[in-house]
Nucleic acid binder design. Sequence first.
DNA 1: TGTACATCAGTGAACGCGCGTTCACTGATGTAC
DNA 2: TGTACATCAGTGAACGCGCGTTCACTGATGTAC
Lengths: 232, 232
Amino acid sequence: MPRQKMITPHGNLEQAVKETAWKQIAEFGAAALSLRAIARELGITAPAIYKYYPNRDALVTALIVDAFTSFGEAQAQSIASLPQTAHAQRLMTLGLAYHQWAMQYPERYHLIFGTPIAGYSAPAEITMPAAACSLDVLVNTLASAQTAGLLNMGSIPAMTAEVQSMLQTWQNSAAPHVHIEVLFLALTVWARVHGLVSLQTGNQFPLFITNPGAIYRRELERIVNETIQLKN
Amino acid sequence: MPRQKMITPHGNLEQAVKETAWKQIAEFGAAALSLRAIARELGITAPAIYKYYPNRDALVTALIVDAFTSFGEAQAQSIASLPQTAHAQRLMTLGLAYHQWAMQYPERYHLIFGTPIAGYSAPAEITMPAAACSLDVLVNTLASAQTAGLLNMGSIPAMTAEVQSMLQTWQNSAAPHVHIEVLFLALTVWARVHGLVSLQTGNQFPLFITNPGAIYRRELERIVNETIQLKN
DNA sequence: TGTACATCAGTGAACGCGCGTTCACTGATGTAC
DNA sequence: TGTACATCAGTGAACGCGCGTTCACTGATGTAC
């Protein structure tokens, strides 16, 4: 009985492997990702995958890079058509896009922002630029609000020397024209949003919270209101 | 060559298995937890574990319950000796204890609040009460501030009917005397704190943030200031 | 104090399984002449 | 238009491994008389 040919020939296999990998990560988790299982589902033999990825970890790394790219693009696109001066709207839209991307691709979200896969450590020189990039859109949005004098920095507590120096390092190496208060706000806005989203994707809310998305929207409004001042 | 006896006899094995399991989860992740590996490290044979746990998942469930208990106790104890009326101090202390517990037991933190283990789903009737309980201390702290008229609820956006009804369900079944605004605040304070903590335990901050704990402390101050009003 | 016996924690062999990775190979494709 | 040849994507067998779980068992312990 000849093996049925299930894949389109020639090179599309590299893409097909990644797509199947995502499917399996969604079902069994990234730690259980198996080249043999991917090959089985694609109707090829496992060694064929080695023509495209030297080993299992290389595939995981490729998936992580793709996830960061997809995330960054979703962030940038969400506000692309909004006027530069609609600061509150831009922040709100970014936050909604963050949530929506995570809901649409929970496996991708978990892979880049969830519990790290033990026994695998992503090569920092590959993932770190992607990670830093993904915060850029948020930083820029807050920075332009600050330039317009509409960023509410009153609630930021006095920073210790240590915090200041960390933020300055960041400022020097990635965002020379952005005030460190803006960087602090970006970090905390990100963390606040991430907290709710990761509780939701992980199903860790109390049972009664049947629609975490609705809670998210309220909290996002609160964050935007606390962060961006109304125009006067 | 006789096998060396490495464990204390009689019943302590149940505890020893859990301790070794935590060690291995820290190193290899919960998804890779292996009864054979635990047995190997303890100097016993794998089937011996079946005298205490009917299968692998039962062990994981026991670990999760333990983690929730440890977490809940750490929360309760942290504020046990503080005066009931020191609302801001109590919230601050709770937040610091949350962070400290997560740093001390990152594996436990990941197991109960991290990315769920794919292929394993905890029996809800066991973990859900524990999970709900673990929020209780926070809810009570905020509720007593609210009773004293010191909870800042001004920043809470108007709630949609849907959000109100979810919170009312929660209120009815678990916290009958607590206003739903307090429940909303508890949820969001938890999520904000969780966001920073999970980014830190997952090493997901930008490289420049060499001491995420310092950022956490600033942000926690900000949360407390926004949540609890100063006495007048 | 001494013996027979029940208990039961832990053993060791075995089961069937899936895994990552290697290696020599095949056979379709496309090019050079 | 036809033939010889190189390329290289994918094959299939094999490696050594660790896993969860089962089962009949052993041998130390403690109790009953």
